[in-house]
Simulated assay, not measured.
Amino acid sequence: MLRLQLGPADLCRVRFADRLHPVGTALLAGQWLRDPTVAAMAPALAERAVAAEVAGDAQPATAILRHLLPDRGRLPDFVTPFEGLESVEAGLEAIRATPLRRVRAEVTDAYADTAGTLLRRRFAAADPEVLDLFGGAVRAWFDAVLAPHWPDLVSTHRQQVTRASQRLALHGLAGLLGSLHPAIRWREPVLEVRTWWGGEVEGTGHGLVLLPSPLAGTRPRVLVEPENPILVVYPVPMPRRAAPAGGESLGRLLGATRALVLRRLADEGGLSTTVLSRAVGISLSSASEHATALREAGLVTSERDGGAVRHHVTPLGAGLLGVGPEQACSEA
């Protein structure tokens, strides 16, 4: 049991993470989906993870991640950083920026009960070549397994934040903290969390960030770093809606991320470049590039609205997605 002693400065700064962390979510999912019992809760994702393990371009990536990270339990904290929420690339940049001393200490601790291999020893030594190999594996695994489901995962996170915000408004902070998850209990001024490690931890004075995630695993995850808010990632139910029909074929045609951009614009319509980047989990510059490519292909139109540029799916783009042309016309 982990007991978080929260002071007034922490309790005055309780907030929700505004989005899922692409890299952190991928690494938690990669570990979580190895357990057949909990993988049954996310059959579509589990099926993609198995497919990535046995065949396709992501097979080497899966093997690397399985070799370098523990099968269960606590991951090295630096692989789930606070920074890098904007995209997979931003998350990997935050990982690469981790001080070498910290990488060595956390990986060595994670390997305490694991047989040593040359690759693991090089990872524990923060070998730049192995860190780059690790980053490439994360990117490939995300694209193969999570990318087709990312809009649904993002939508689930938003829905959970909305519901929790309503509980806060109706029942106050104690009501919120006491209802997050069965493994989390609020005993003022202590937040008790049944996670993968235990002890007594003082608040940092920088607040508490709550992150509901459908891929947190079977227990909440807690990240405590000096000069940062305490991060509590807690499990929530998987989204019920499956990945869109035809998503894989469209991904092969356009690329997984570009297909997701087109799908999100069809689902919501009229999104600015900034909102689109958040909805898909990519950087602002990447969202702009994908929107430009789709516009040049006649699948998207863009119009300036004050200081923002808003994007809409065209009838051609709607037809490619299987959306009714009348819907596309009304959105555009």
Rank of each mutant, 00 (worst) to 15 (best):
A63E: 15
R194H: 13
D10Q: 11
G270W: 04
G298S: 09
Q327F: 08
A137W: 01
T80G: 11
T114Y: 13
G198M: 03
V224L: 06
L265R: 13
H171I: 03
T80E: 13
G116T: 10
L271E: 14
H21M: 14
G135D: 15
A63Q: 15
A256M: 14
Q5N: 11
G7W: 05
S87V: 02
L68A: 04
T257L: 09
L11T: 01
I184L: 03
E129I: 08
P128H: 09
E296I: 07
L215Y: 07
G251M: 09
E326R: 08
L92M: 11
T218M: 04
P128Q: 00
P81W: 04
G91I: 14
A279H: 15
D305H: 14
G307E: 13
A42D: 08
L45A: 05
C329S: 10
G255W: 15
L20A: 15
T314Y: 03
R221E: 04
F16L: 12
G269Q: 11
L276R: 06
H290W: 03
L45Q: 08
V201W: 06
L20R: 15
T257K: 07
M41D: 02
F142K: 05
Q159T: 12
R264Y: 01
G136W: 11
L265W: 13
G84E: 15
L119Q: 00
H181G: 04
P36G: 04
P128G: 02
E192W: 04
D35V: 04
S285I: 14
C12W: 15
A112H: 09
G205Q: 09
R258N: 05
H157K: 05
H181F: 05
L68I: 08
P99S: 12
A332W: 11
R278D: 02
H181C: 00
G203P: 01
A52I: 04
D77N: 11
S155I: 02
P43Q: 08
G116R: 06
A112Q: 11
V233Y: 07
D35N: 10
H181N: 05
D132E: 01
L6V: 09
D132P: 01
L191M: 02
L133A: 07
A279D: 13
S286K: 10
V190N: 00
E192S: 13
P226D: 10
P237H: 05
